[in-house]
Design a protein around this nucleic acid. Sequence first.
DNA 1: TTTGAGTTGTGAAAATTATCACAATGTGAG
DNA 2: CTCACATTGTGATAATTTTCACAACTCAAA
Lengths: 205, 205
Amino acid sequence: MKIAENTINRLIVYKKELNRLATDGLSNVYSHKLAHLSGFPSHLVRRDLMNVGYNGSPAHGYNVTELEKCIADFLCTPESVRVILVGVGNLGRAILDYCQQQNPKISIVAAFDKDKNKVNKVYHSIYTFHIDSVKNYIKENNIDVAIITVPAAEAQEIASALVESGIKGIVNFTPVRLQVPAEVYIENLDMMLGLEKVVYFVNGD
Amino acid sequence: MKIAENTINRLIVYKKELNRLATDGLSNVYSHKLAHLSGFPSHLVRRDLMNVGYNGSPAHGYNVTELEKCIADFLCTPESVRVILVGVGNLGRAILDYCQQQNPKISIVAAFDKDKNKVNKVYHSIYTFHIDSVKNYIKENNIDVAIITVPAAEAQEIASALVESGIKGIVNFTPVRLQVPAEVYIENLDMMLGLEKVVYFVNGD
DNA sequence: TTTGAGTTGTGAAAATTATCACAATGTGAG
DNA sequence: CTCACATTGTGATAATTTTCACAACTCAAA
């Protein structure tokens, strides 16, 4: 069954909130509470959970840990995912740091840059290689996902190289709309776009 | 007329691509080309442009600079927007830097942190104030939009304080779902969520 | 002038997504 | 046991969003 992208977004949010509830020691939760925590209406929560195929109880709602696991299974979250990052600028280094504090299942295993002053250095405990070695690295280590944080002018060239080496998904932090084959999944995380959207909704209507 | 959030996203993308076309010296563009550049189908481009009320010519397509201005007007993009940033960690500093390289109409005018070692310092030419002064700053300078890059544990407390002071829109880089009144617009830019989504679409289907 | 190629703008249809409303269910108190 | 209550799961409905298809238009060339 095909699931809408928005549904996936929400499921990821539910999963995170469930995880937090679990660490808080709660064992069950009602759709209303999950709705309140995640910011979506409760009937959407229930509808989304229909998709993952987990059944709650009318009396106790959902079992927190079971539902979390069920969503994780549904999202096919593998036990560990290895990701690379290209572009060790301010933003790239911040992401190297940030990622380690979050989901331990997803880890950045290598960074790449063209600047010789950065190559062979370690940032936030991630080793930086020269960009020329990225193709080999991807192939030898079977990497599927890359994060791009290079300057806008280099983004397309880098993306093409990554795709050529077999990358299947890219988190794109540059403002450039990357041109890649349809089977490569691109998640654009343009911070400026986010800011502009907020400005629109605050100003306009 | 009410415009869907996705439409707003696309319009912002069109605007950026148009800007790039303009600097490249092109004077007009067809919906197909704009579609290719932005990654959306051409009939969606035309449908979206219907909303902003700009009319192209069947022979020459759209005038690049006029359309760009028209979209900007539609999005109510003010001549200049002043934004503050709360949380001068690695990510916060990277954003301070990144923002200045992009849209010159939107500028971060002040940063805030609770760490005394950061207060009164200047990062990427933005002055850092103590977090205790943020409420006054917002009121005195009439700030509408804030960027939150504090640790997850402090996010909600900060958000509540900002809202109390009159903030109308927040770009939230923390993984926390902020609880705010409905009239405050929140844009969640959770990098981990983006990564997880890519992992899902790469792995699963 | 007339024809033809290529594009826009848009009504209408299709597909998708969200909302509603309520039957079915499980629980605990009396 | 039975009843009242609160919640889930879901068919049906409504709303939204996208896609299709083509008439209307512009220009250039013959």
